[in-house]
Structure formats: C-alpha cells, structure tokens
Design a protein around this nucleic acid. Structure first.
Lengths: 192, 192
DNA sequence: TAAATTAAGCAACATCTGTTGTTTAGAATA
DNA sequence: TATTCTAAACAACAGATGTTGCTTAATTTA
C-alpha cells in the first residue's frame, strides 16, 4: 500500500487525486476532533468523494490511520536522511531527536490524541523504526544477531519520545536527548 | 473501573454475574476469531445478556479489551508477587520472564492476534509495567528521577517480550531471558 | 482517434452501533 | 417483612458500516 514518490507519479491521476483528498480531509478532521469520533462518513463528506470510493482505497478508518502515519513518518525520515545511513552515536542522536519532534508535532496537530489513536500510531511508527535500526546495525557487517538489540533500541527510543511528548512542561529537546541517548547507545556500541 | 478482589465481593451480585458473563464470552470469542471481527452483538449473544446491558458496563468493545487485558495481566503480576517488591536483577529477570510468558500465552489463546488487537493490548500492559517499575525504583530511596529509566525499561521489556512471543521457533525462554536481561539491567544498576 | 480499461459516482441492502424510555425482577435496607 | 433502590430486559431510534450491482466519465492503449 505504501507508495514511494517515483511509482506515485505513474499512478492513475484519479487515484492520486482521491487519495490526496482523503488524506487532506483526514488531517483536517484530526485537528478538530479525536480519532475515535471521526467516522468514514466525516472523511468522505469533507473530501467530497463518495463513501463507497473510500472503501476502494482503504478497508476501514484504521487502515487510513496506519497509512497516514506511515507516510508522514517515512517522509520525515527521508527529509533528515536517516533512512540511508549506518549506526553511529551521532546518527542515533538525530534519530531520537527526529522521533521526539515528530510525536510532539503529532500531539500539537491533533485535537485529542487519545489512547486508541496513540496505540495504533505507536505500532505503525515502531515497525518502521525497527526496520530502520535493523538496517543500520547490519551495515556494521557484524555476525552478531541484530534483532534483539534493534528491538530494544526501537522500543526504548519510542518510549523516550512518547515520554517527552507527553511531558507537561517539555524540557528543552536538546537537553532531554543528552540524557536519553546513553540509555539507548549503551547497547549498540558493538555496531559502531 | 479496574476492581480488586476485596471490593469485588461487596459488589451487587447481578453486576458481578453480568461482568463475568461478558468476560467469559469475550474470551471464548477471542479464541475463535480476531478482535476486529468480534462485535458487541457477538459478545452479548454469547453471554446471553441484553445488548443495552453491555453498554451499562463498557462504553464500547475497546474498553472491554482494555479491561480484559488489564485484569488478566494484573492477576499474573500478583500471582508472581511482582507487584509488591523492589528492584533487583533477580526480580527484573522474573518480570521479563512473566511478560514473555503472558504474551506467548495470549498469542496461543487468541485465534488471530492482529495489529489492532496487539497495539491496544500493548498500550494497556505497558502502562501497568511503567507504574510497577516506577514503584520498584522509588523503593531505592534515590533522589534521581525514576521516570526516564522506568520508561526505557518498560518499553524495552515489552519490546523484548513481544519479539520473543512472535519468534517463529521460540528459543528456550530461560535462555532468551539470559540474553535479554543485561540490555535492560544496564540502565538500572543505580537503583539496586 | 477509437476502443478498451478502470476509477468514481450513485443507490440500496442488511447489519451493527450507541442511546433512550419503560417495564420487570432481584438485592439492600429500614 | 415491607419498602426502596437499582440492575437487567425489552423495544425502538437515528445514524454509521461495509458491500453490491449498475452507470458515468476519465485514462490508457492500440
């Protein structure tokens, strides 16, 4: 389902248009009310498309959320060129920063990010993080299995970012990452 | 909403009965089909209660899932007396073991544990884990803030357990925990 | 350009949701 | 025990869901 820019271009323009209408409408609605109270109806009315058309693109609103988050998060990774690189403390630092930033923005952009919304978004983002970290660690050419360290790192990073983005009075991001980085890096030294 | 055993007893027996009927029905349905395709109707028919009665107990099926998981997980923690103790590598080991075990069982008990189900269960369990770990770390009487280490530990533990419970050919649990423990313990030494 | 392909619009469906008002029956209390 | 309280059953509601078959219009392709 997830589409990269190049194959996006040779997609039927009607499809591109509809998808973009859906995503824009969804984003606007998220700014107004919580995910749980957004219906497929709401989305299609706002997007000015037929409701049946929605179902030709997504099985349900949960799939839409997944696509929406994936797409936004991957774009963020690409923008920061974190997708194509290797493990180093500096890159890890930037990754943590990026995730904190992304979540903080997500929270400020969404009217009422409730439990359900957050849990689903978390699953989506963590999957991407795990893939990305696995890729990083394998660059080191090590024979050690990367799965366990990548798992711990992906979950820990998300946990930290989630904690940061929920803090009442958010500490300065840079300072927070200074504190957080070593707790993640400590297990990755062997891949540097 | 979550009820401990003592106050459960002095609850109106009709309420106790209904709740137990709902939970039993829900558990049975989870063994048959995925959470996404279980409707409130399904639950109330199986439980042989009126549908409107369901809504007197839970706002929707997501709240039911949350309650179901919380309740089962907390009971597991109590059984292993992990709820009332402090941080030590040995206790941490038991905790990781317990979470792995719980998730593995959850997966074998549920017909089709899909993304949505897992994400929601994860949120519920991790909240409990975070509270429990915060409690542990505070026992040490340290002045250091426990929030960041507790966050990293809760997320990392869940990540590991999730990884374990998804492994195709599950390694021996004891062995897995031997490998996993140090990655979590490394950040908690100061609270021993 | 003409023909073939396929996305989007439209309408109608059975089903499920969450809510409300009323009645009935079981539990707590005086 | 008699009375009061309140949970559960029941019925009916407007609204949303996910699906289908059909028509229309845009696009790709030959």
């Amino acid at each position: 389902m997830l589409i990269n820019p190049s194959e996006n271009e040779r997609l039927d323009p009607r499809v591109r248009r509809t998808r973009s209408l859906i995503l824009t409408a969804f984003e606007a609605l998220l700014a107004e009310k919580g995910f749980e109270s957004i219906s497929v109806q709401d989305v299609t009315e706002r997007a000015q498309i037929n409701r049946a058309t929605f179902y030709a693109h997504f099985p349900d609103k949960y799939a839409l959320l997944d696509y929406f988050i994936s797409q936004a998060f991957m774009r963020e990774m690409e923008k920061r060129t974190l997708n194509a690189c290797h493990y180093s403390p500096e890159n890890l630092r930037n990754l943590i920063l990026a995730v904190c930033d992304f979540l903080a923005r997500l929270h400020s952009d969404c009217a009422q990010p409730h439990q359900q919304f957050e849990s689903l978004a978390e699953g989506t983002i963590k999957n991407i993080l795990f893939e990305l970290l696995s890729h990083w660690l394998k660059q080191s050419g090590t024979k050690i299995s990367t799965e366990i360290p990548a798992t711990v790192a992906a979950w820990a990073i998300y946990g930290l970012a989630s904690y940061y983005s929920h803090s009442k009075k958010r500490p300065a991001l840079e300072k927070f990452v200074d504190d957080a980085l070593p707790l993640v890096a400590v297990n990755l030294g062997q891949f540097a």
